[in-house]
Design a protein around this nucleic acid. Sequence first.
DNA 1: AAGAAACGTCAATGACGCTGACCCAAAAGG
DNA 2: CCTTTTGGGTCAGCGTCATTGACGTTTCTT
Lengths: 184, 184
Amino acid sequence: MPAMSEAPESKPVGAGRQLLFLREEELRLAQDLLFFGYRDFTAGPDAILAELGMGRAHHRVLHFVGRRPGITVGDLLSILGITKQSLGRVLTPLVEDGYVTQAPGRNDRRQRLLSLTEKGEAMEKRLFERQREWVMRAYREAGPVAVEGFRRVMLGLMGPEARAQLDRAQPAATPGAPKPRSAA
Amino acid sequence: MPAMSEAPESKPVGAGRQLLFLREEELRLAQDLLFFGYRDFTAGPDAILAELGMGRAHHRVLHFVGRRPGITVGDLLSILGITKQSLGRVLTPLVEDGYVTQAPGRNDRRQRLLSLTEKGEAMEKRLFERQREWVMRAYREAGPVAVEGFRRVMLGLMGPEARAQLDRAQPAATPGAPKPRSAA
DNA sequence: AAGAAACGTCAATGACGCTGACCCAAAAGG
DNA sequence: CCTTTTGGGTCAGCGTCATTGACGTTTCTT
């Protein structure tokens, strides 16, 4: 199976400055980066949420409901990839506390179409702003080219299902420039 | 809704196609990317770990102990950013099951210097390989430039403390001799 | 000898997942 | 019309991973 890290005899791997052969250290760095980066990325919102007796799961609901107003419970479940029991534990309080509203579907009245209330939007906005400052700093430090690269790698890190959901979740951001796809 | 033409800093970004002003959608995409990407990144190891009755926390210990053999419990705690009780719940079984060894420090015998046993190394290797395939795919699809950008952004997403720890954790990244050496 | 430091551990709590079982109401379909 | 399926909710119990608080031991430092 795995030989220890040795001279990767496989390819000559020229590419002068930044050799990009996936040797051990290369990957271990990626692991570190993702662990620390994700943790610190979520730290800001976590702090706000904790004050309100909420957790990361609440934030996710606010985020995805905000992103797709009128989403059905089922769709939300498949995006989050959790069970309805798990969602219920988080969604019910959000509804009771007036962050999220439920409306019966017009076509299918069994459905509960979820949307954010004003309170919910304000909350989401607050969490969003906190994270925005953080990401903005990282983006600025890294520069536009790096940001594009970041996106491409993160997209590649996602499984096909998640990628499909992401596409579906993308609302037409600006009326007129709909498809920020492809990229090169 | 954020205005459209509000370049935050007057850096002449140029870069014709993808202007990098951090408008709303820009950030929401980052949130999605990080959520889905991190989740799917950890999915592989999680599956293996579950079979063995372990969790993500065990993986982290194996990872960081493997990265810095002879690390003290205190250092590991500050890297992971958890309490010693939390670590104990995961570390004790790892030691009992023969994945990790403890050796008294030669300068300070109060310390328990942690290292992986052969069993532990094999385990870590297995988890590593799973993740390597996944990251490798993403890296290949994205290309070297994107990978460099990914690193820069993730680094920016980390807090200063994490960045310092990452530096300390980095064994010589020079291509050719990636074998760290530290306390006996 | 006293105190601080490094580590371990018992106990309780909370967030966030999971499975299994069961319920209701509305849609679908014979 | 009546049965089945589907969208959603809920109760009960379990496991992981994190927390705080308190206490104990060994060892280093002063």
